[in-house]
Amino acid sequence: MNTHRVLVLARAGAARDRTEMALRQAGAALAAVLDPATADEAQVRAAAPDALLVVLDPVAEAALEKFEAVLADPSLLVLFDDAEVAARRDGWEAARWARHLAAKLQGHRNVLPAPPAGSAPDRDFEQEMQDLSMEMAAMQPLPPAVQGSALAQPEGAVVVAAGIGGPDAVRQLLGGLPAAFPRALLLRQRIEGGQYDRLVRQMQRAAQMPVVLACAGEPLRRGHVYVVPDGVDVGEAPAGLHFVEAAGEPRFAPLRPGDSAMLLLSGAPPALVDLALAMRMAGGLALGQSAENCFDPAASQALAARGGEADSLAGISRQLLQRWPA
């Protein structure tokens, strides 16, 4: 097994300390640990790393422009983490993150450590999922929507749900889609503290499409990525789909399901599996991120257990482009 040389770009503190510990547990060698506020590209190059792990906080994010060339270097594996999340990881979550890093660096599927004692698989739940899959297979397809009414046939969109471990997955997905992608992408990723404007800036660095914050009253436009914050959902009006204020989690109900996709990436809430399956039954796409290099595949695995499909991030991008050629 090759030992990867990883350079960490992070400010001093608990997040950096825990990141270094996780990399050592993952079997990586630290090429260097640099403060992004004071380091430069030449120092990164001089350390000759195989991979670059960036721990993001507002100061680090503001300093990323001077590292754009090295971040775009195809010979380097680039990973991102959130400083607030990294600083809080301990116990089983810390062990799982170390396995996730090892999987990323070595390209294998061994992501999860053994679960805590007493958490054996729930056979009743597995049987229930099998029974439900059989019931769904026997259900009749939904009738086609009534033609002729603009409101009966709103355009679809691609909903991307992610959580812990999701930023890297979302970056890879967005990087594989062209600027002319002919549908809107709606990114729902819960963030503690509600710093969604920061997520917009992070994702814009990876995406070819414009990335904006979804705001109530604004219309959905093709070829745009919308970061959906708390309290916002999709609504419908004679002029077309737009964002509205809403309580609770968004349901994306006005999207035409046969012209939409629901993507459950790492850390997506399992509660969205039902929405994804309903979309699939109406002719849309319901795809989960495959377990390979997926930090938290719970939603994706639940989707697959009930008749959905899991695929690699590259495979998901290909399926989107096959459905909606740019």
Rank of each mutant, 00 (worst) to 15 (best):
P116W: 06
V146H: 10
L142H: 12
M136F: 03
F125E: 07
A120I: 04
A138Q: 15
A152C: 05
A150C: 01
P143D: 08
E155S: 13
Q127P: 00
A152M: 11
M129E: 11
P144F: 10
S133H: 02
A117Y: 04
A137L: 09
R123A: 05
E155I: 05
M139C: 02
P115L: 07
P121L: 13
Q130H: 09
M139N: 01
P154C: 09
A152T: 11
R123Y: 05
P113F: 13
D122S: 08
A137P: 01
A120G: 11
D124K: 03
A152S: 08
V146D: 06
V146R: 15
A137S: 07
Q127K: 10
M129L: 14
P141I: 02
P154I: 04
S119C: 05
S149I: 02
M134P: 00
M139G: 03
A145L: 12
Q140I: 10
A114E: 14
P116I: 03
P143L: 13
A150L: 06
M139R: 15
P121I: 15
E135N: 00
E155N: 09
A120E: 11
M136Q: 12
E126V: 10
P141T: 13
A145C: 03
L132W: 11
A117Q: 05
R123K: 07
A120S: 11
P141M: 09
D122R: 15
M129Y: 07
M139Q: 15
A114G: 14
S119Q: 12
V158W: 01
A137C: 01
M139K: 10
P115W: 05
A137T: 06
E126H: 08
M139T: 14
A145R: 14
F125D: 02
S133D: 03
V158S: 01
L151N: 01
M134S: 07
P113K: 15
D124N: 04
E128K: 13
D124A: 14
P113H: 15
M136A: 06
E128A: 12
D122Q: 13
A117F: 05
P115Q: 08
G118V: 11
P154Y: 04
P141H: 06
P141Y: 09
P141W: 13
E126S: 10
P121M: 12
A152E: 06
P115F: 04
A157C: 08
P113Y: 15
L142V: 12
Q153V: 05
G156A: 08
A114I: 07
D131H: 06
E135P: 00
P143Y: 10
A150K: 08
D131E: 14
E155P: 10
V158R: 00
A138D: 12
D122Y: 04
V158H: 01
E126P: 00
G118Q: 11
L142Q: 13
S149H: 09
A120M: 04
A120Q: 15
V146W: 11
G148K: 01
L142K: 15
M134K: 15
P141R: 07
S133P: 00
